[in-house]
Design a protein around this nucleic acid. Structure first.
Length: 490
RNA sequence: GGUACCUUGGCCGAGUGGUUAGGCAACGGUCUGCAAAACCGUGUACAGCGGUUCGAAUCUGCUAGGUACCUCCA
């Protein structure tokens, strides 16, 4: 197998040739959502980024096992150091079972991901379903001597780990600097050192999410599920671990420490991180009032939005930036993407009805190679899109009768467009193009009307011609005349 | 304060030591009964000030501005 894919490894801060551990298999783990609220843009970026990687690895011939976890336990509220976590808090506020909250938001998350055409991962493990594995993982760390028990909780010994290995290799931090900058937090007395983090936390009496363990009734620490489930489903060493840049420290740093402490070696070979999203140049945050959920984008129901934006517009917009760049959402930028996306998809639709000629006057031969090269360069989707737009010009020229394309070139162009537009970038036409008999019948009816209009035009009966067009437009159709016919869409 | 990253034309956004990114918007033109679409043409952009070089927007130093993380966060 060729190894032409280069990906940026956060660990080494450079692009590296991707060579999987056990070809043709690739193991990939991505940090998924904490399901205590509606999905927002911040969830869309990693989902789409790693969906792109998942698709590209498969197109490159790999057999990929893609694991994306669901965090449904843990993650303490910073202002609730009494041991309440986000899901338990939400459950208490809404008078529900924690798992009821989890299920509700998980269903909504899945729906949003489907709308964005994000493929489901191979395995979607829940933290709550792997408590036993997490307890076993803690035992391994305790046995290795890198954790200690305190008041029914278990903490990771960062100082000892740093002495034997090195803490901070991913984020470029060292513990001396970290110690200087540590702020005073409540509930630190149980820890030997402020940098130590919980592997198991004893539950307070009012804490509703709890499981028995050798140390206390409680719940697993914040970082443990990824180390545990990654190892369980992908092995002691695996290829790719992804997530948002904000997770580099402390989450992924702690994961590395946990896995290395328990297994004696690092488990992840390539760390990949997507950059953040800003809205009108500002970080998105609940306190800043610019926190927009995916549903709000799809329906336009947020005061910062001028209009609704289709899921495919959001996807296209995100793909128009390379995943390691920040991407700023603004109405102006989104509208530009919406138009560009429509232009691209119209060209794709025209391509399907092009008629071949004896020779080509357009050059589309190296499109596949150019797009492949761009994808192999750390998933440079903006470049892929720019090449597709170049080809769109050629498609439109042929459709206008201003250029010709040979049968061979046409087949290649169709195959390449399908590969990159649909299979790799995961873009699809928004209108549901079902082939049910009702929609077929309705398409025929519209075609019939437009054919009558065409005849009227040929007879220079502009009154009838315009009447049909105006009526269809009023009903919401877009009508475009072409060289020798028409195009329409709803 | 510490660490890392960034600053490209009206907007978004790639890339690079010397050669057109691309999209949106704008302007002019072609086509068209009109409209829409499409096509053609037009912008001499790379934060500022030095340095290296035959040549830098691309390498380097400083300055200014911005973003992220520093135990909630995608």
């Amino acid at each position: 197998m060729e190894h032409n894919l280069f990906i940026y490894n956060t660990l080494t801060r450079r692009k590296e040739r991707f060579i999987p551990l056990n070809e043709p298999y690739v193991g990939m783990y991505v940090c998924g959502p904490t399901v205590y609220g509606d999905g927002h843009l911040g969830h869309a970026r990693p989902a789409i980024t790693f969906d792109l990687l998942f698709r590209w690895l498969q197109q490159s011939g790999y057999k990929v096992r893609y694991v994306r976890n669901i965090t449904d336990v843990g993650h303490l509220e910073h202002d609730a150091d009494e041991g309440e976590d986000k899901i338990a808090k939400k459950a208490r506020l809404e008078q529900k079972e924690p798992m009821e909250v989890v299920q509700y938001y998980l269903n909504r998350y899945h729906k949003a991901m489907e709308a964005l055409n994000v493929l489901p991962p191979s395995i979607e493990p829940h933290a709550s379903g792997h408590i036993i594995e997490q307890i076993e993982f803690i035992k391994q760390i305790l046995d290795a001597g890198y954790a200690y028990i305190s008041e029914g909780s278990v903490y990771f010994d960062v100082r000892k780990y740093d002495h034997d290995h090195k803490y901070g290799i991913l984020s470029g931090r060292n513990i001396d600097d970290l110690l200087e900058n540590t702020r005073e937090l409540d509930g630190q007395q149980e820890k030997h050192c402020s940098l130590d983090f919980a592997l198991w936390k004893k539950a307070q009496p009012e804490h509703i999410m709890r499981w028995p363990s050798p140390w206390s009734d409680g719940f697993p620490g914040w970082h443990l599920e990824c180390s545990t489930m990654g190892t369980k489903y992908l092995g002691q060493q695996f290829d790719i671990h992804g997530g948002g840049m904000d997770l580099v420290f402390p989450h992924h740093e702690c994961e590395i420490a946990q896995s290395t402490a328990a297994l004696g070696h690092e488990s992840v070979r390539y760390w990949m991180h997507n950059n953040m999203i800003t809205i009108n140049g500002q970080k998105m945050g609940k306190s800043l009032g610019n926190f927009i959920t995916l549903d709000e984008f799809f329906t336009g129901s947020h005061k910062l939005l001028d209009q609704a934006y289709a899921p495919m517009t959001i996807r296209f917009f995100i793909l128009q930036a390379q995943y390691r760049s920040t991407v700023d959402f603004s109405n102006e930028a989104l509208k530009a993407s919406e138009k560009g996306y429509q232009r691209l998809m119209e060209a794709y639709s025209r391509l399907k009805s092009l008629k071949p000629a004896a020779t080509s006057t357009v050059d589309v031969k190296d499109l596949r190679a150019k797009c492949t090269e761009a994808m192999n360069d750390d998933l440079n989707s903006p470049i892929v899109i720019s090449h597709l737009f170049e080809a769109a010009k050629a498609i439109n020229a042929v459709a206008d009768g201003k250029a010709t394309i040979s049968a061979e070139d046409l087949e290649e162009l169709k195959a390449t467009y399908k590969l990159f537009v649909e299979d790799v970038l995961g873009l699809k036409a928004d209108a549901a193009e079902g082939s049910s008999s009702t929609s077929d019948a309705y398409k025929k009816a519209v075609d019939l009307l437009l054919n009558i209009r065409l005849e009227a035009k040929q007879n220079k009966d502009w009154a009838t011609s315009d009447k049909i067009r105006n009526a269809l437009q009023a009903a919401g159709f877009t009508i475009k005349d072409t060289k020798d016919g028409f195009e329409w869409s709803l």
